[in-house]
Design a protein around this nucleic acid. Sequence first.
DNA 1: CCTGGGCG
DNA 2: CGCCCAGG
Length: 961
Amino acid sequence: MTDTAAAAPKKKLFLLDAFALIYRSHFAFSKNPRINSKGMNTGAVLGFTNTLVEVLQKEKPTHIGVCFDSAKKTFRHEQYAEYKAQRQAMPEDIGIALPYIKKIIEGFHIPILKMDGYEADDVIGTLAQKAEKEGFEVFMMTPDKDYCQLVTENIKIYRPAFMGNAAEILDVAHVLARFEIERVEQVIDILGLQGDASDNIPGIPGIGEKTAKTLIQKYGSVENLIANTDQLKGKQQENVRNFAEQGLMSKELATIHVNVPLDFEADKLVLDAPDEATLRELFEELEFRQLAARVLSGGGPQRTPAGVAAPGSKPTRRPKLVAGDQATLFGDAAVASGAEEGETGHYGAPSGPRKRLEDVPYQYHMMDTPELRKSLLSFLLQQTEVSFDTETTGLDIMTARLVGLSFCWLPGEAYYVPVPTEDPAAVQGIVEEFCPFFEAAHILKIGQNIKYDLTILRHYGVEVSGQLFDTMLAHYLIEPDMRHNMDVLAETYLHYSPVSITELIGPKGKKQKTMADIPPAEVKDYACEDADVTLQLKHVFEPMLRDLGLLGLLNDVENPLVPVLSSIEYEGVRIDSEAMTEYSAELQGYITELETQIFREAGQEFNIGSPKQLGEVLFDKMDIGKGKIKKTKTGQYATGEEILSQLATDNPIAALILEYRQLTKLRSTYVEALPQLVNEADGRVHTSFNQAVTATGRLSSTNPNLQNIPIRTEKGREIRKAFVPRDDQHVLLAADYSQVELRIMADFSGDATMIEAFRLGQDIHNSTASKVFKVPLDQVDSEMRRKAKTVNFGIIYGISAFGLAQRIGISRKEATEIIETYFQEFPSVKQFMDESINRARELEYAETLLKRRRYLRDINSRNATLRGYTERNAINAPIQGTAADIIKMAMINIYHWLREEKLQTRMILQVHDELVFDAVQEEVAYITPKIKELMTTALLLPRGVPLEVEVGTGRNWLQAH
DNA sequence: CCTGGGCG
DNA sequence: CGCCCAGG
């Protein structure tokens, strides 16, 4: 009442939640610790002070106070012994920072408020309400969402500013929208239901954010929910009933108590002029030169503008050319913030509409002069992890040209380096400027689908070194069967919609522009945003992966595999196009001949390739295959291989059609298609390996798919003759695991008979045949072996009698018998299969040797077909996935060995259990045993079943087998 | 069981 | 989009 602020229309009181702000500052800098020359980590002090200064300068409060939690136990501990029990001890760096922070607050002549037995939020809440009554506009400065319950018309939350942009002020409307509630008080009902892990508030089990909102929307309060427990269903009802007490207590714990016995003495909180001498001394000691310059009159070094403003760039801030006491290039206004926990990131609330670039504070900088690039590089080299992205003219790796590079190491602040695409020499020069960064072994490089960027850079002669972190692969391990493109990830995990590429270059089609057609100033935001979002995703995914126990798989397998695949794709496989053309003509000869024969048999000409026409000709007109006719789901005649081969014995036309199909398939899919994909510059095809599509962990290959080149039939194998070494000095070397999946099965099940067979190096299919058909090994004939082989594969696939019968062309009954005998002979295999299913039922996922998961949420389905299918997956996924784990490890080890030994042999293909190399002839003798060794020892199976690898070489891929 | 591509 | 078929 004593203050005479008649000039100000409204008195503005700021109450700072000190610990919350300090912790936030500390963790914001923890990835890029800021250490001064005395070795002190000054991140927390700097972040806090920046926040304070910013609010003083921007918001010009009339009154201000800083609240600390009291060191003593609070009434909440008496209420609930576990309260905040699991909260870790204060980091040492914060302990050291605290005295400095207190001195700085005193230097600003700002009172420190605390009350024994109460927490900062209680103190702030009490003071805020008292101040409101006295006509103040109150801002509670905190990142903590619990304060939302206190918001009124005159009491708001002030979320700390970010990177010098406007801070976020949360008013009543914000709070209601964010929690999807009607009254502000309901915040505590939400918090009481969902709990808060960081404060160890238990909540009610099974109720998270989503459910809490729905329930409160329906019932209004925790009390009313409990009163209406009978309206709930199933597990939820059970939980609410059993944990009603706990829910009420949680609500109580989440409630901020506004009755702290404390007087509001406005005159003590009046903002005063700072004690410049004290502050100067402190800033000096801490080496906060920028801050001193900004806060103290005439003190500290002046910021000198540097560089020329780029056309289109906002002339708001100019970079410093030397690395000073800030972690960012333009960091003089940097305020600690970030998305360390995903949910509290500046990209905002976990629900509600997706934010877009225009909704968030950001600073994206154009770095388009030699000086700016030099400055950027010097900052890059000081980082320990940087996210980067390349912008190119297209997605085709062989023809795409670089348009620009973006970099980001602090959320919200990124840098874009455009390159003059039309001047290749200049582009090369700029790319090379950044070599010291790309080749820095100590900097972790983060990217989304970083293989693409690596391959692009490889085309400019840059080999990226240092650890990699690919957010696409990170998410592939978290949710293997979801999509992993960046836009979806940003929406799901950051609640943010990035600028879409179509907004920039227009919709798909002829008129679509490329990135090179867009002015760099417009590409800048898009490019920077990509790097920024990727960095933030990394910060979300890393802790998730750690919790799931998948961080090792990512860091030891998936991420290190990226450069290996990039290299494989870059090298490519040489195709003998001439041989292909010749073979095409030869095939065409056969095909024409077959056509005339088929038309002769049918008595008419028709499109043999159309299942519809074919069905009509065969079954209506020719009226063949009585009793064997089947229809597909869509009502058409089935004309698949299975049907046709049954008809083939009596009807020559069926056999001809089968052969026709085979040959036309060979022609269209391989012989005609492959030469089209040969890169003219080097005569090779460059497939792309997708590392994040299969549910089991395998790779897949596209454009072209080099993992399904024919081998089983005579005419198909011919195609492999066109896969040749790069020149006369090279040969193709193929290294195959023999029966990896069966060996894994033997090992996992611990079946003594099977393990023995592998230990003795026996032919596993013969040995299985001998057991299943109960004949001595030397009496197994080729038919028995063939059947046994199918059974063995069936086992890996989680066998069904139905499937087996179809495969070997025997009756269901016979198949069932074979399976029964098999399980009698290999009881541990049966046991293993049962255990796999049971384990999957419990966990709802299956896992490989390296803990790779495949979620099997349908394994408890009541739909028997669906459940059966999922059960087979429960058996197959760990086996197929472990085989994938093994060969991935082998690839990484071989790649590094070849590099270390400076060998010229290159890995050029992976086909699930086979690696193909373009091998220098003189190196073959040296590398063969080593490749064998690295493949067989890539991963050791738990029970020690040995892996075996066969190596062959030749003038083409066929010979190499 | 796991894939990708061509065709109608 | 379903079918068919190439590979593992």
